[in-house]
Simulated scan of single mutants.
Amino acid sequence: MTKRIAFLASDARVAQTAREALVARYGHVAPRDADVVVALGGDGFMLHTLHGTQHLNTPVYGMNRGTIGFLMNAYTETDLMSRLAEAEEEVINPLIMTAMDQSGKKHEALAINEVSLLRAGPQAARLRIGVDGRVRMAELVCDGALLATPAGSTAYNYSAHGPIVPIGADVLALTPIAAFRPRRWRGALLPKRAQVRFEVIEADKRPVIVSADSVAFPDIDWVEIRSEPKVEHRILFDPGHGLEERLISEQFT
């Protein structure tokens, strides 16, 4: 059966040109009417597309027309229907973040890759870290810290020297960013069901910004993060090029 496809593209000219060619060849429907959404861009646009279509429960197949393409498949125009028919599906759960800023306002956001806290001034951040209601680190002096999903473990987490986590592992990676004290602390692997709380010590003097993927909030007082199993993102990959294979391959490059 011919699939109804919604083609979405980033603002980059190369992505827009690809979309025009694919729409001319395969047609186009609105995302709400599609059997599959094809995202054209890089990983940033893929995350944007997944967030924007999560209420539809429609699988997303990405083709790389951007800079980074860890979540994307190779771009071609001629055999899309057969590739979609043979594609393998990965289902991932995002993190849900609740944050309170210094004015007392609460913020919520979902993160497919990671939730990160970063210092927003010249002085290092001071963070208190709790897991499931128990303080595990009374003070971490650092540039920041992040909590990453397995799908996001090769992104910012890996750049911060955090571990790559297999896609099937029910764990989250808690990774410090430029830790000053304790200097040798390299982070922790936590159960997927864990609830992590960061409290900002001296928040007025040492301001911190929190980011859930690309959504950011300044002047944070505390942040709570947990996995959200009620939300599922369906991502399609060419056979043999799924997230599990990519996560393993990344460790041998």
Rank of each mutant, 00 (worst) to 15 (best):
M137D: 07
I225L: 12
R234F: 06
T175A: 09
G133R: 09
I225R: 02
E224Y: 06
L146V: 04
V210S: 00
W185V: 12
R246Y: 07
G240L: 07
L146A: 07
D132A: 13
S227I: 04
I220V: 14
A125W: 00
A155C: 09
D143I: 00
V171G: 03
I235C: 10
I209Q: 13
G187C: 09
S153N: 12
H233P: 02
P239S: 10
I220E: 01
P239K: 12
R206C: 07
I167S: 15
H233S: 06
V210W: 01
L189F: 04
P207T: 12
R226M: 11
A216K: 11
M137T: 08
V141C: 10
S153I: 07
V196W: 04
V200G: 00
E199K: 14
H233K: 06
F180W: 13
S214Q: 15
P163L: 06
G162S: 05
S227W: 00
I220K: 01
L140K: 06
I129S: 05
S227P: 02
R134T: 15
V135W: 02
A188L: 14
I235P: 08
I235S: 10
A173G: 08
L247T: 09
L243I: 14
V208C: 07
A212S: 12
K230I: 07
Q195W: 04
Q195S: 14
A145C: 15
G240V: 10
G242H: 08
A124D: 09
E224C: 08
S153T: 11
A151S: 14
V171Q: 13
S214T: 15
F217S: 06
R126Y: 11
F237E: 05
P239G: 13
G168F: 02
P182H: 08
I177S: 08
G240P: 03
L190H: 09
R126M: 15
A160H: 01
T149C: 03
